[in-house]
Amino acid sequence: MKIEVEYQDDIAVLKLDGELDIATVDFFIDKILEVKKEYENIIFDFSKVEFVDSTGVGSIIKLLQDNNELNYAITNLQPDVKEIFQILNLKEILGEEIFISSNQKAIDFLI
């Protein structure tokens, strides 16, 4: 997995690229913890993520629940990832409002 970080005002946009699975989850968590040192508003852009396994889903849940000072949004879910998130009821666990269709709408939501 690659993670490109772009900064817009006081928001960090993390553009995820690759698979979020058992092999990449530690890198994912480390990157988020690094970014959150300076930014409380984070957008997770999933436009280039085609697969997330149970380890990846678990890491998202744990990371976001353990860091409740963060304001965040998850954007641009690909159909297969969206289906996995729906099956696992992530909208109920994390809140439906954080799943947003585009980065611009997420920026408006976080401001």
Results as ranks from 00 to 15, higher is better:
residue 98 I to P: 01
residue 17 D to W: 05
residue 82 K to G: 01
residue 68 N to P: 00
residue 6 E to D: 13
residue 24 T to Y: 07
residue 79 P to E: 10
residue 94 L to R: 07
residue 94 L to N: 07
residue 102 S to I: 11
residue 55 T to N: 12
residue 46 F to M: 14
residue 103 N to P: 04
residue 71 N to E: 11
residue 63 L to I: 12
residue 66 D to W: 00
residue 38 E to W: 05
residue 49 V to E: 00
residue 109 F to Q: 07
residue 68 N to G: 04
residue 105 K to W: 00
residue 110 L to F: 09
residue 94 L to S: 12
residue 10 D to W: 01
residue 47 S to V: 02
residue 104 Q to N: 15
residue 91 K to R: 15
residue 66 D to K: 10
residue 59 S to D: 04
residue 23 A to P: 00
residue 7 Y to E: 14
residue 67 N to G: 11
residue 109 F to P: 01
residue 37 K to S: 08
residue 67 N to L: 04
residue 60 I to M: 13
residue 29 I to M: 01
residue 22 I to P: 00
residue 26 D to Y: 03
residue 55 T to L: 07
residue 6 E to A: 09
residue 1 M to I: 13
residue 12 A to I: 09
residue 39 Y to S: 04
residue 89 N to Q: 14
residue 87 I to V: 15
residue 38 E to I: 05
residue 7 Y to K: 15
residue 73 A to H: 08
residue 73 A to K: 08
residue 86 Q to H: 12
residue 21 D to T: 05
residue 27 F to D: 14
residue 98 I to A: 07
residue 41 N to Q: 06
residue 22 I to N: 06
residue 50 E to T: 13
residue 6 E to F: 14
residue 31 K to P: 00
residue 52 V to E: 08
residue 9 D to R: 15
residue 49 V to L: 02
residue 81 V to P: 03
residue 13 V to H: 04
residue 43 I to T: 05
residue 20 L to G: 07
residue 33 L to T: 11
residue 6 E to L: 14
residue 21 D to M: 02
residue 75 T to D: 01
residue 2 K to E: 15
residue 94 L to T: 07
residue 102 S to M: 10
residue 12 A to M: 08
residue 94 L to V: 06
residue 17 D to M: 12
residue 22 I to H: 13
residue 11 I to D: 02
residue 94 L to E: 07
residue 30 D to Q: 15
residue 13 V to A: 10
residue 35 V to W: 02
residue 67 N to C: 09
residue 97 E to A: 15
residue 66 D to C: 04
residue 19 E to K: 14
residue 43 I to L: 09
residue 64 L to D: 00
residue 18 G to E: 08
residue 92 E to P: 02
residue 42 I to R: 00
residue 103 N to A: 08
residue 36 K to G: 05
residue 68 N to M: 05
residue 22 I to R: 09
residue 3 I to C: 10
residue 82 K to Q: 10
residue 30 D to H: 13
residue 94 L to A: 13
residue 80 D to Y: 03
residue 97 E to N: 14
residue 47 S to L: 03
residue 34 E to V: 11
residue 32 I to V: 15
residue 68 N to R: 14
residue 30 D to M: 08
residue 24 T to V: 05
residue 81 V to W: 03
residue 57 V to P: 01
residue 20 L to R: 06
residue 61 I to M: 04
residue 34 E to M: 06
residue 3 I to G: 11
residue 102 S to V: 12
residue 73 A to W: 02
residue 15 K to S: 10
residue 37 K to H: 09
residue 81 V to H: 02
residue 6 E to M: 11
residue 82 K to C: 00
residue 11 I to F: 10
residue 37 K to W: 07
residue 46 F to N: 03
residue 38 E to F: 11
residue 86 Q to R: 13
residue 12 A to S: 12
residue 11 I to W: 11
residue 60 I to Y: 01
residue 16 L to N: 02
residue 11 I to V: 15
residue 18 G to M: 03
residue 38 E to T: 12
residue 12 A to P: 06
residue 76 N to F: 01
residue 13 V to M: 09
residue 9 D to C: 05
residue 84 I to E: 12
